[in-house]
């Protein structure tokens, strides 16, 4: 009685092995050609000196050595890190705030759809939009500021404000989306726990610190880790608005790599820089996971 179906199952499994390959094949080709091979080729190219013409000449670790002492590279890294610090903390706090307000005020999906709009639109459009709103001469914000008798604010054209302004643009773009993830996390908190705290007379602040934050910790960890990874890869907004300037105030790492690779055709140098960025991101992510998992245990 038991043997027949088992046998039949095994037979169908053998057939499956061959069939599985057919189902996998298109994605395997795409995965190999545009993910695995380029990743490996990138490692190889980073060890060569190549201007896209002729054959790549093997130079060992020379590109890495040069990068380590390249001030422009480290400056762009520093600008990127500063940008991440302007971007992530404020974005996360705002998203958490929005999620908490939504939880109390409205769960309507129309509302959620509306606050998602900035995130759904092209970066290029968002960048153009803010370039216009923040224009020092005729932008609506500065025109209003001037009509109050104050001096216009050079959001994107001064070395001090350009980077925080770009962070602001991306906070505007991402806070609604991030809030929705946090909001989804909030729905996972058991009602009884919150009600019990209410009956015990816990203040809103205590409930926030003792219940909401600990429950949200995995969601927040996920949100922070993924948005830090994304934030390090800032390119579109900068490319449209400031193009790295004024001077080098917004010259982020993607701009450095793009310039070396696609404008100066220093393929080896650019890929080496991308590999260093990858290693740094791995390190940062690993560190964050360690830190956030460590603090998770208090609940």
């Amino acid at each position: 009685m038991r043997e027949t179906p088992n046998k039949r199952k095994r037979k169908s499994l053998d057939k499956q092995g061959a069939g599985a390959l057919l189902f996998l094949l298109p994605s395997l080709i795409g995965f190999a050609a545009f993910f695995i091979v380029p990743a490996l080729r990138g490692i190889f190219l980073s060890l060569t000196d190549w201007d896209l013409l002729g054959k790549p000449g093997f130079v060992g670790l020379e590109n890495y050595g040069k990068l380590l002492t390249d001030e422009e590279f480290w400056n762009s890294m520093l600008v990127t890190v500063k940008y991440v610090f302007w971007n992530i903390p404020l974005q996360t706090v705002l998203a958490l705030g929005i999620a908490l307000v939504m939880d109390r005020v409205t769960k309507s999906s129309v509302f959620r759809g509306i606050i998602l709009i900035p995130w759904l639109l092209p970066n290029v459009v968002v960048a153009l939009l803010w370039l216009w709103l923040l224009d020092p001469a005729v932008g609506v914000i500065n025109s209003t500021v001037q009509s109050w008798g104050m001096k216009p604010i050079n959001f994107l054209t001064s070395t001090e404000l350009a980077l925080p302004s770009i962070a602001g643009i991306n906070i505007w773009r991402h806070m609604g989306y991030t809030a929705l993830i946090v909001f989804a996390g909030l729905q996972g908190i058991p009602r009884e726990v919150e009600e019990a705290a209410l009956i015990d007379g816990a203040s809103p602040w205590t409930r926030f610190i003792r219940i909401i934050l600990p429950y949200l910790r995995p969601v927040l960890a996920f949100v922070i880790i993924t948005s830090v990874i994304g934030s390090f890869q800032i390119y579109d907004t900068v490319a449209i608005t400031t193009r790295g300037g004024p001077i080098t105030a917004t010259y982020v790492i993607y701009l450095f790599i793009f310039k070396n690779g696609f404008e100066s055709y220093l393929m080896g140098y650019a890929t080496a820089a991308s590999m260093i960025l990858f290693l740094i991101l791995m390190g940062v992510s690993f560190l964050q996971m360690r830190i956030m998992r460590a603090s998770e245990s208090d609940f």
Partner: peptide, 11 residues
Amino acid sequence: MIPSIVMMLPN
């Protein structure tokens, strides 16, 4: 986990 630019150059 890999930043897009790592694959973009060889691609």
